[in-house]
């Protein structure tokens, strides 16, 4: 497999007034060229923090554990060890935007309101490509056209507030793609959009991905969206990937009790008369991380003396499908 990015053992801690918290603990995943990895989890599960660590966009109070490895193969097949880069300076700036593009959830908050869309795109393009102002503008118009914005010649001179939500999100995608990144990180890009617009944006993103052969990390809490767009999925809970594998496998044969719970909690038109089944209990706060398996406080299959003592290791199930749960481990099976 043509691996574009491989992350191993990523842990991120923050210093807070209540002590050190670790919202991401020992996360490993890979993204292949031209494929999409979906990251699912509740808020506070560490989805955004782990991708921000990749871009080295974490605030000063955060530290990335020294054993973490974030290896990225750039456009010239040169291996970049992101964990060794300095947070400032030319190498990381070339990576941000140029190699790895990012789309945020709220398109209004990620554009500057006082510059036109074109202005902001031209700035990004000229930062990464050796183009003159006029050429950069032409490229910006071309990108706007590519993401399906009608009349791009006029739209390029508009301010973000003059566009509708769906159009702003398209402009955001155009901006993220304008410097031609090889990997795109999309952080809940469709959560704030209406279903009709969401369907359009999802289709647009998978089309563009095919055209450009980009790798993509798609963060969302909506498993319906994951089912549509992701090749592989990683389910996060309290900063740990509890299950990962090909999307079809994980959705059809979920192995971790948390994945099962998430799938059952989704309202479906096929089950209109049934009561919804929430995952019982609340997600613990990051400074009250339970001992052993992070999910043991809410799990209905807890094996006493095992799950609440030792954290389970990753157990392979099928090709590319693995789970962190004692129920699928020999030791756990014999105990249960």
């Amino acid at each position: 497999m043509d691996t574009l990015l491989s992350v191993e053992n990523l842990s991120v801690s923050f210093k807070t007034d209540e002590g050190v918290i670790t919202p991401v603990q020992g996360v490993s995943f890979t993204v292949a060229r031209g494929k999409t990895l979906g990251l699912v989890g509740e808020s506070g599960s560490g989805k955004s923090v782990s991708t921000k660590a990749l871009m080295r966009l974490l605030p000063g109070s955060a530290t990335i554990a020294p054993e973490a490895k974030m290896h990225y193969l750039d456009k010239h097949d040169k291996l970049i060890e992101i964990e060794k880069l300095k947070g400032k300076g030319a190498p990381i700036r070339a990576l941000r935007g140029g190699e790895i593009g990012m789309i945020f959830q709220e398109p209004m908050a990620s554009f500057s309101p006082v510059y036109t869309i074109g202005n902001q795109m031209i700035e990004a393009i000229r930062l990464h490509k050796k183009l003159g102002k006029r050429e950069a503008r032409a490229h910006a118009i071309e990108m706007l056209d590519k993401v399906g914005i009608s009349n791009p010649q006029a739209r390029v001179d508009q301010y973000p507030h003059e566009m509708s939500g769906g159009m702003r999100q398209r402009a955001m995608i155009a901006l993220a793609l304008s410097a031609g990144p090889a990997l795109l990180i999309a952080d809940e890009p469709t959560t704030a959009l209406d279903v009709t617009i969401q369907a359009q944006v999802l289709e647009l993103m998978s089309d563009l991905q095919k055209d450009l052969g980009m790798g993509m990390i798609f963060i969302t809490h909506d498993l319906g969206v994951i089912a549509q767009i992701a090749d592989e999925v990683a389910v996060m809970y309290l900063g740990t990937i509890v299950e990962r594998g090909p999307t079809r496998d994980v959705i059809h044969n979920p192995a971790h009790p948390y994945t099962v719970g998430l799938l059952e909690a989704i309202p479906s038109l096929d089950r209109l008369d049934e009561r919804l089944k929430p995952v019982p209990g609340d997600i613990p706060s990051p400074n009250e991380r339970p001992q052993g398996c992070p999910f043991q406080t809410r799990c209905q299959h807890v094996v006493d003396g095992l799950c609440n003592q030792t954290a389970p290791l990753e157990t392979p199930l099928a090709a590319g499908h693995s789970v962190r749960c004692w129920l699928h481990d020999e030791k756990g099976k014999s105990a249960a």
Partner: peptide, 8 residues
């Protein structure tokens, strides 16, 4: 346009 939790 409602996304379905069904990859197939």
């Amino acid at each position: 346009a409602i996304p379905q939790v069904e990859p197939d």
